[in-house]
Design a protein around this nucleic acid. Structure first.
Length: 567
RNA sequence: UGGGGCGUAGCCAAGCGGUAAGGCAACGGGUUUUGAUCCCGUGAUGCGCAGGUUCGAAUCCUGCCGCCCCAGCCA
């Protein structure tokens, strides 16, 4: 509501969700004794994206709310696609969002010894067996969605034999795919995850954490729940597609000597229109150089969103606005944009920057005269101080802010009409200079010296206010204006991913003019360029003296709406 | 023809038997040296559909319909 409402904790939304309510009930009824423990369990095989932010906010938020703990655990059970680069970026992203995990970073791989022991336990209990069917045969034996599967011929082999075989697998005596360990559950189960799922497979590959120690690796299903139990996780929260795995999760917990009994809960993942959140597809954009990397400002990755200029607080607010439920849907990006506008409107200092310059000569202003005007750093926050704006005979205004003639709806500079220079005087245009092609390259105006902080003497207040930068005292800047990466609402539906791309997702403005003070800000400083939008000094490319800004988001633009309606 | 979910305004989402919160978007209007912000106002006789139970149903029951997930030795 008011200007000071938006902060790290977001605006005043209830922020309740079914999981928070559920846990509150569990605590009230005594079902939940002790601290609530959650975890965020990414696989380090890609960068985190906006969808992960929802999970992070949920898991850390719940722990915070109930005064419990949330751990970070890398679910690194498959060395194939995992990499240290991702481990590093994931940690940086979580910290940037403002969350702190409890204790040290955990790795599922650090439980491999225990997990291996659990596998042996299951074998000894006659609940797991080494299968020597090939991956293809296992698929055939599994049946289909509507037909039950068939038992593997190795299903009833003696536990002692399975144990010996499994140990041989672990010693590296089998080739990948030659054998696997399967839980013995029910090949006719309607839930396919219960049709003797593979719980250990051979992977002759070095692991980023355990090196060459192992050549057998537990599957997600065999590792996740047990890891939760080992860590004392009380609420293992994941997305809806894992719901079918819950019976397996519970089956394993029930049959293994685990130290705790965690429970899995599911929620719907968040989709955003005009964007994709498939790691595979995002990787493709990076690898095919459609974007400049995982942190390209157009990417929906946390690091891309950061580079775009979004604040951690705005992401958290967004997640709260969206809420948590079990009904999957697609959120409008307008909600994300609202979150960052709301944040930056209250926190970003104001500045003026001309993206597409048109020269103005103030003919009744002396050649060498420089008047330093004072302007507010923020229209309704005195604590942001003031800035100094040098006004000179020649200035630049936005080319689209001038027309030789226009109807009354156009409230900017028109030949023969007056307009207010933001934070300065009222000027009136009386002449244009054109090039051979007839394009206006310069506009001559006169200024009214009595209008600094005052309306003209004739009492006619100009309808419009435009921004400007001194042509002699302003600084040049490079500004990148970003738009959505995809032009179609649901890029995932596109037959070919690249077909949905927006060809105008990036426009680089090289000859921009910015007020002197704003050229000196530190990287990642966010500013509002008045009348234009919110911008951030690029995290990497910006330097004092060579300013480079990214547009975070445009200001709400009712004029654009009026105009596109066809006047 | 199997198993598991989900259906409340354009979008997200509360509600859990007592007569439809909130946010985003949209649209009006006011203030304004940012066509910004801010402020005020406008939305479902209706909760996928059809029956039923009840004094009373989005909430309970039955039957339909629609959408999503599952047949990786991925997570």
């Amino acid at each position: 509501m008011s200007h000071d409402a938006a902060g790290e904790s977001g605006t005043a939304h209830a922020g309740n969700n079914f999981l928070k309510n559920l846990i509150a009930e569990q605590i009230a009824s005594g079902e939940q004794q002790g601290a609530v423990v959650t975890r965020f369990p990414p696989e380090p095989n890609g960068y985190l994206h906006i969808g992960h932010a929802a999970s992070i906010c949920l898991n850390f938020g719940l722990a915070e709310h109930f005064d419990g703990a949330c751990r970070l655990r890398f679910d690194d059970t498959n060395p194939d696609a995992e990499d240290q680069e991702y481990i590093d970026s994931i940690q940086a992203d979580i910290q940037w969002l403002g969350f702190e995990w409890d204790g040290a970073v955990r790795y599922t791989s650090s439980y491999f010894d225990t997990l291996y022991g659990y596998a042996l336990h299951l074998i000894d209990a006659g609940l797991a067996y080494v299968d020597e069917l090939s991956p293809e045969q296992i698929r055939e034996y599994r049946g289909t969605l509507t037909e039950p599967g068939r038992d593997s011929p190795y299903r009833d082999r003696d536990p002692a034999e399975s144990r010996a075989l499994f140990e041989a697998m672990a010693r590296g005596e089998y080739a990948e795919g030659a054998a696997s360990l399967r839980a013995k559950i029910d090949m006719a189960a309607g839930n396919i995850n219960l049709r003797d799922p593979v719980i250990y497979r051979i992977r002759n590959k070095a692991h980023h954490q355990t090196g060459d120690k192992w050549c057998v690796y537990p599957s997600y299903d065999f590792a996740h729940g047990q890891s939760d139990a080992i860590e004392g996780v009380t609420h293992s929260i994941c997305t809806l597609e894992f719901e079918d795995h819950r019976p397996l999760y519970n089956w394993l917990i029930a049959h293994l000597p685990v130290p705790a009994r965690p429970v899995q809960y599911e929620f719907a993942r968040v989709n955003l229109n005009y964007t994709i959140t498939s790691k595979r597809k995002l990787r493709r954009l990076v690898e095919e150089h459609i974007v400049d990397g995982w942190d390209d400002p157009r990417m929906p990755t946390i690091s891309g969103i950061r580079r775009r200029g979004y604040t951690p607080g705005s992401i958290r607010t967004f997640c709260e606005m969206v809420g948590v439920s079990r009904s999957g849907g697609t959120v409008d990006t307008a909600m994300l944009e609202h979150a960052i506008r709301d944040d930056l409107n209250t926190h970003a200092a104001r500045a003026m920057c001309v993206l597409d310059p048109l020269k103005i000569v103030i003919t009744n202003w002396d050649e060498d005269r420089v008047e330093t005007l004072e302007a507010a750093g923020h229209p309704n926050r005195d604590d942001l101080g003031t800035r100094r704006l040098p006004l000179t005979r020649e200035i630049f205004i936005e080319a689209e802010d001038f027309r030789e003639s226009a109807n009354k709806k156009y409230k900017r500079l028109v030949l023969g009409k007056k307009v207010r220079l933001r934070n300065a005087y009222v000027i009136e245009a009386h002449d244009v200079v054109k090039d051979e092609s007839g394009r206006v390259v310069e506009v001559h105006c006169t200024y009214d010296p009595d209008t600094l902080g005052d309306n003209p003497a004739d009492g006619v207040k100009p309808k419009g206010v435009i921004h400007w930068v001194s042509a002699t005292h302003g600084k040049q800047a490079l500004v990148r204006v970003y738009d959505r990466l995809f032009a179609v609402e649901n890029p995932a539906r596109e037959a070919e991913l690249l077909d949905g791309l927006n060809p105008f997702s990036l426009t680089v403005h090289k000859g921009c003019w910015i007020e002197p003070g704003a050229a000196e800000v530190a990287p990642e400083t966010r500013l509002q360029f008045e009348r234009t939008g919110y911008f951030v000094a690029d995290r990497y490319d910006h330097a004092v003296g060579a300013p480079v800004f990214n547009r975070v988001v445009a200001l709400r633009d009712t004029w654009a709406k009026i105009e596109s309606r066809g006047e």
